[in-house]
Design a protein around this nucleic acid. Sequence first.
DNA 1: AGCGTATTTGCAACTTAATCTCAATTTCAG
DNA 2: CTGAAATTGAGATTAAGTTGCAAATACGCT
Lengths: 143, 143
Amino acid sequence: MESKIFRDFLIQRGLKLTKERMAVLNQIFSIHGHFEPEHLYLNIRNSEIKASRASVYRTLNLLVESGLVERISRSDKGNVYEHTYGHSHHDHMICTTCGVVIEFFSESLEELQKMICTEYHFAGTTHTLEIRGKCRTCQKRKK
Amino acid sequence: MESKIFRDFLIQRGLKLTKERMAVLNQIFSIHGHFEPEHLYLNIRNSEIKASRASVYRTLNLLVESGLVERISRSDKGNVYEHTYGHSHHDHMICTTCGVVIEFFSESLEELQKMICTEYHFAGTTHTLEIRGKCRTCQKRKK
DNA sequence: AGCGTATTTGCAACTTAATCTCAATTTCAG
DNA sequence: CTGAAATTGAGATTAAGTTGCAAATACGCT
């Protein structure tokens, strides 16, 4: 469970498990899909246990370091994150017209990337692939 | 030649070809590889024909719209761009230890992405693939 | 359970990249 | 050449995210 992982991460670093940190963690794992820090902060403002903007950002950074959360892109309006625990690796297609995000995964793509890394003697650990274009709906809408 | 392309782009949009815009264009195409807007601005400050920061940023956006320049990533410290004219498509491996950027291209990777797009009924136009990890040198350096 | 201390919090001030405002200047079609 | 429309530069502004610091809190120790 994610809170156990986070707790262990904090202990191992000599950090403390505060209610604010738990509030941020819970809020993130109650969100389905992607989120922006500001949106996250607003949700927390309206929840039972609150946390300041500073704490939200600080906790978010800790969560990224712990590996529970990943920053998946930087839009013109700040970062976009998603939680990765219980959420296997995937890449994104982003519609430049309506902004919809389609998640996809391809084993062949992963394999191919591994091969390319080998070829370049590069020890790849993570990657981000973002394909931009038009989603099915927006293609139709275009006269 | 890039200045002709830019000129045509401007005319087609009813915009004007100013010396400041040319200065930005020339500076960008004299840079080999990647650049950051602030760095670009500083170079222009020291060149023959100068342009203000505002003009540099405005021109940069126009160049991206014209397709001559591409924004390849958003680091913690702002955006990174590169010119694409006379510079065929490629992706990047970024060493998380020393920051070196390795450019690579794989036809199979491109093909595979096209297939995936078809599968998802997505009309992909551009993509960015960034593989992070350790470069050959940093792997060796690691005891 | 209570103590002591190192960590954390919240607030507001700050930082940094990038955009905007607007008066003065420049481009360029006619 | 002329004049309308676009552009420029300087500085103000915006917005995301970070930081300093005094007060509050978590938690190992006894």
